[in-house]
Design a protein around this nucleic acid. Structure first.
Lengths: 343, 343
DNA sequence: CTGAAAGCGCTAACAG
DNA sequence: CTGTTAGCGCTTTCAG
C-alpha cells in the first residue's frame, strides 16, 4: 500500500465500508468503539490523510472563518493575527489566514475562498475599498471589514465594519504636537493620490493646523514615493531626507510607525537629535516602537478592541443578525520619548 | 440566477454543454472564439467563480509549488516571501504560501496540503526537524529544506537542502569580535534546550572563544526565556537585562537581529552607549538593522542565493533529478556601526 | 451499528 | 468544435 491512499484503500484493508472509515476519522458517534479503534490504527500506520478538496466539495458547510489580508508583510497587521485566531477559536470556529497578493483582487480572491472552503464568514483586514458592500455582498456569507479605510468620497458603507476614525485621531495627534509647542510640523504621509488611510490622516493634519491658525506650507508635506513600497522604513527614510533637505521643522509626524523608523535614521544622518532637535510622532503603536532609541511616541490603534468586536460582529451576523453596524473606537496616545515639550 | 452558481448553471443559461464552459474558462484552445466570448460574458455578468475544491479534486496534477513556513511572524522569513514568489513564477510555476501554526505538525500539514492542492513540490522554510527525510518522504513530491536547522545529533539528511553553516558562521562572527579586541563577550542565544539553530550558533560561539584561549564563563550566556516568544525583541530585551545585571562585558552577540533590537533598549536603559560601552553584533542581516541607531553590524544570510538555489533544486527534482543535494552558502559580515574596535 | 449508493462541481476523454 | 459521460475522494442518506 503506497503512494496516494484514499479512504477506499483503508476501507478495503480493514474489510469495512468506506462510510465506516469516514465515521471513524470524523469522530462520528454512531460507530462501534472497537471498529473505530481498529480503523484509526490502520490510518495511523499508513499515514492516511483525507483529501481536503474532496471533503470541502462534499460538505455543504464548514465551520470556518477566514481572515483575509492584503499586505501580509505589514507588521501592524501581523501583530493582529494571533488574537484573531484566538478569538475565533474561542467562539468555536476554525480559523484560516488567507493572504491576498498586491496584484490580486481582494473581492475575487475572497469569493473564491468562500466557495472553495465553504466559509461561514470572513473578516477583511486593511486595504482600501471603494463601495465595498456592492461587491462584497456577492460573497454570500457575512463579513466584516477591519481597519479598512473607506474612500473619503463614498457614502458610509452599509456593511459591518470596525475601525478608528483616522481623520479625527490624526487631527488629535497633530493637536498634541501643537500643544507641545510645535508650529513647524512636517508630515510623512501616504502617496499623493491616497484617498484611503493616508488621505484621511493627512486631512486630520491639515485640520489641526488650521484650527490652530498655522498656515499650511506645502514644503512640510512629504508624500510617500511611488518607487518604493508604501509604509516601509525605506520610504520613510527617503521622504524624511527630502523633507530635511527642503525645509526645517521642529516636529515630524509620520502616519505610520514603520515609516517613523526610517525617519529616525534620516534625522540621525542629518546630525540632528531626537527629540531635542526634531520630535517624532508615529501612528499605529506597533510594539517595535518601544525598542527604538528614543522610544517612539505614537497613536496606538486599539487592536485588542478592534479584533474583539470584529469577531463578535461576525459571529452575530452568522447567527442571523441582519442589522449591520459600523463601530469606531478611539485611539490612545502612547507618550514615550520622541516628542519634546517646547513650552 | 442567484446564490451559488455552478458550471452547470452557466452551461444551461448559455445553452451549451458543461465541457464547453469548462473550455472557455480554462482557455482551452479547442473552442470557437465566438462561443467562448459569449460564455465569458455570461460568466462575468453573473460573477461565476469556479469551485477550486472541485477543480483540485478532479485534476490529476497542478502546476503549483508551495512555500511552507512555520513562524510566519518571523521578519527574516517574511523578507523572503517575495523573492520566492518571483523565482517560482519565473520558472513557470504557480506559487502558494502556506503558514503552519506553532502548534501544528509541519509534516502533517504539508502532506495535507500536497494532497489537497496536488502540489508539484514544496519548499519548507525554517523551523527545526529531526531526521526530516524520514517523514517528508511521505510527501510523495519533491521538496527542499531552506534554512532548516538539522538537529546536531542526527546524521546528514538525505534530502535537498540549502542553508548556511550556522556553527561556522557563528564562530567567525565571534572571531571578528575577538579580533576587534573584545574578550568578555556575552551571547543572547536560543532556549537552553535548543539543538537547532540556537544550539549551533552557540556552539560556534564557544569554539571561537576556545580557539582564542578565552575561558568560558557561564554568566555570559543568556538563554532565551521560555515564557516569551522566541527570537523577539521582547525576549532579547529581557535576556540582555539579566545579563547586564549579572555580569559585565564589552560586546554582546545576539544570534538573531530581532533580539538585538531588544538588547539595544536594555543597554540604553542601563545607561550604556552602543558601541562605546557595549558593542552589539547581530545575526541574519535583516533590513531593519540599518535603521537602528547606531546601525546594527550583523552576519547577513545570503537570502538571495539561498532562495534562488532552493527553487532551482526543486525545479530540478520535479524534472526528475534523483540525486539530492545539500548546499551550503557563506554568510557575509555587514560591518555597520554597532561594534567598536578596542585595539 | 454498518454498507451501498448518490452525488458535491469540475475536467478530460470519447464520440459525434 | 461540441455535448455526453465517467469519475476525482469524500460525506451522508437510506436501508439493512
Amino acid at each position: 500500500m503506497s503512494g496516494n491512499l484514499t479512504i477506499k484503500d483503508i476501507a478495503k484493508y480493514c474489510g469495512v465500508g468506506v462510510s465506516t472509515v469516514s465515521r471513524a476519522i470524523n469522530d462520528d458517534p454512531g460507530i462501534n468503539a472497537a471498529t473505530k479503534e481498529r480503523i484509526l490504527k490502520v490510518v495511523k500506520e499508513f499515514h492516511y490523510i483525507p483529501n481536503n478538496s474532496a471533503r470541502n466539495l462534499k460538505m455543504t458547510e464548514s465551520n470556518t472563518i477566514a481572515l483575509v489580508v492584503r499586505g501580509i508583510d505589514n507588521i501592524f497587521f501581523q501583530s493582529m493575527f494571533d488574537q484573531f485566531q484566538q478569538e475565533t477559536q474561542e467562539k468555536g470556529f476554525d480559523f484560516l489566514l488567507h493572504s491576498v497578493g498586491e496584484n490580486e483582487n481582494v473581492v475575487k480572491a475572497t469569493v473564491e475562498l468562500v466557495k472553495e472552503k465553504r466559509l461561514k464568514g470572513v473578516v477583511i483586514l486593511g486595504g482600501r475599498m471603494e463601495r465595498p458592500e456592492e461587491k462584497l455582498d456577492r460573497l454570500g456569507v457575512p463579513y466584516v471589514l477591519c481597519t479598512v479605510a473607506h474612500s473619503m468620497y463614498t457614502p458610509e458603507p452599509q456593511c459591518n465594519s470596525v475601525a478608528i476614525d483616522d481623520e479625527e485621531e490624526s487631527r488629535k495627534a497633530v493637536e498634541y504636537l501643537i500643544r507641545k509647542g510645535h508650529r513647524r510640523i512636517a508630515i510623512v504621509t501616504g502617496r499623493e493620490d491616497d484617498t484611503a488611510v493616508g488621505g484621511q490622516r493627512l486631512m486630520g493634519y491639515q485640520k489641526a493646523l488650521e484650527a490652530a491658525g498655522i498656515a499650511m506650507d506645502e514644503d512640510l508635506i512629504g508624500y510617500m514615493k511611488r518607487s518604493i513600497t508604501e509604509f516601509t522604513p525605506e520610504n520613510g527614510y527617503a521622504v524624511t531626507r527630502d523633507l530635511l533637505a527642503r525645509t526645517d521643522f521642529t516636529a515630524l509626524y509620520c502616519i505610520s510607525d514603520l515609516t517613523a523608523i526610517g525617519a529616525y535614521k534620516a534625522i540621525a544622518e542629518a546630525g540632528k537629535r531626537i527629540p531635542e532637535d526634531t520630535s517624532v510622532l508615529g501612528f499605529d503603536g506597533i510594539n517595535l516602537g518601544q525598542f527604538l532609541v528614543p522610544s517612539l511616541t505614537s497613536v496606538k490603534q486599539p487592536k485588542e478592541a478592534l479584533i474583539h468586536s470584529c469577531v463578535e460582529l461576525l459571529a452575530d451576523a452568522i447567527d442571523g443578525a441582519s442589522q449591520t453596524r459600523q463601530l469606531t473606537y478611539p485611539a490612545e496616545l502612547l507618550e514615550r520619548d520622541s516628542v519634546m515639550d517646547r513650552n
